[in-house]
Structure formats: structure tokens, C-alpha cells
Amino acid sequence: MSSPAYNFAYLDEQTKRMVRRALLKAIAIPGYQVPFASREMPMPYGWGTGGVQVTAAIIGPADVLKVIDQGSDDTTNAVSIRKFFVKTAGVAATTATEDATIIQTRHRIPERALGEHQVLVYQVPIPEPLRFLEPRETETRRMHALAEYGLMHVKLYEDIAKFGHIATAYDYPVKVNDRYVMDPSPTPKFDNPKMDNCAAIQLFGAGTEKRIYAIPPYTKVVSLDFEDHPFVPYRFNAPCELCGSEDSYLDEIVTDDKGGRMFVCSDSDYCEGRQAAGHTGSLISAPYKERAARG
């Protein structure tokens, strides 16, 4: 055991080329799911193996990596993936959104607008937006090929029929570049508008399902809806109790077993940045009435 056990960024070069080819194709056909030969990674499926392979294929020694899980830099999944790349690629890591060149994410898009120098890598569990209603892969592929997307609205119809409004709060389907319907991974629908006309490259990797897809910079991304039930981003109607932010996506934190709870920014870097700039929230855990921010 004298020589280093791993290639740069863990994956061998042939595998990286294979992933890059898939990525190039994905960028050329925005929203289209490109099959790729997903590898075994030294972490369980479901821990972001797809995202990790994408990151490994595009990362270079000069890159600065940020990894978030549910918006936070310090949860287990984020910490272990960050450590993984620091160890296998020797790259610099950061928690500051604006400093990062590659941001690997599970379930959130940072609050701060991304720039042209950045790549956002999503970890995707189930890439097929039609899967919920059509279990046959052969059929869903054909539906994508022929742009038969009536079924997607069936799902939204069911929501309205059951709940009176489109209750899908995450995994909210979008149409990319007026062509492919795409699953944005389980990000909250609050983040959907950020995908539209985004300056950064957005790459999606699904390890278990062996699919890669992408949104090139400045691409039109529209959330599906009905004329009489338009898409509405959802957030708890409260300010962050740490930084007082009124427009960031909030996590609800249960504070005791008596119904006490508090709302804080899900994006930990954004929240810390605001606090450092002097913004403060109430810090008092007053129970807020939960309701949708409509209109």
C-alpha cells in the first residue's frame, strides 16, 4: 500500500470521460435524461452517488467546492461528501456560496443568485417525473420522445381534486426549454423559479437510476400548472428567527414537546451571512400560524 489508492477525485479517467460524454449530451438536450453507466461509489445508494459522480467528472484542482444538504453545509451528508472530495481531489472547500465554483446539493438551491462561473450539481433519487403515474420505463421514454405530457397534468389535477390546490410542495415538475418535462429532484417548489434563466450550469445525477440530465445557463424553465391554478412558490409565512429574512426558504424546527417551534433559514450560509451583516431575527420562539403564501 505505497502508491495512492485513488485516482484524482476517486473515479478513474475512463469513467470520468464516460460521465462527461453523458453530461455533454445532457447539456445539448436540456431536460433530457441521458443514461450513463453509474459506478459503485464508496457510499450507499441514496447518499448522492449520482451527484458525486458528476462532481468527480467535472472537478479540477483549482475548483472550490461547496456541498449542502437541505440547504445546510453542516449536515452529515454534506460533511461526508465534502470530506470525500477534499481527500480524493485535494480541492479547497468552502461554505460560502459566492466563493464556490461547484456546489453539490441535495434538495435546495442557494438563496444567493448563482453566477456564470458556477456549476450546481443536484443529487437526484428518482429522475423520472412520469414515474408516479406510468411505471413502465419503455412507455415513459416514448412519452418523452413524443412530448406526450398530458399525464403530468393528471398528477396536478389529482392534487387540486384532493386538496383544493396544487399540494405538490417539492419535486415539482418543470418544462425545460419548451420541450422536456423534468423532475427538479426533491427541491422545494420555492426554489423552482431560481432554475429559470439561471446563469450557472445545472447538472443532475441519479446514481441508482443511472441517469444524468442538465439545464444549460440562461435556459427557460417553467413550472407546470393550470390557468386557473397557477404555480405558486410556497414558504412558511414568517421571518427567519435568526436573521429576520422575509424572503428565504425556512426550516421548521420543533423546539419542545409542547408545540413550540421556530422557523429559521434553510440556507445556513445565507443566514450566517445576514447575521454577520447585522440582521437579527426575533430569536423568540413564538408559534406562527402556518399558511400558504398565496398570490
Binding site: 406526450e148 405530457y149 398530458g150 399525464l151 393528471v154 389535477y157 387540486i160 393550470f226 390557468e227
Partner: peptide
């Protein structure tokens, strides 16, 4: 409703 949605009906009501 599915067939209607498939031909582009986009009004829930």
C-alpha cells in the same frame, strides 16, 4: 380528463 389534458387543456375548472 387525461385525454383532454393530453391535447392541451390547461384549465382545471
Amino acid at each position: 380528463g387525461e385525454r383532454l389534458m393530453a391535447v392541451g387543456w390547461n384549465h382545471y375548472g
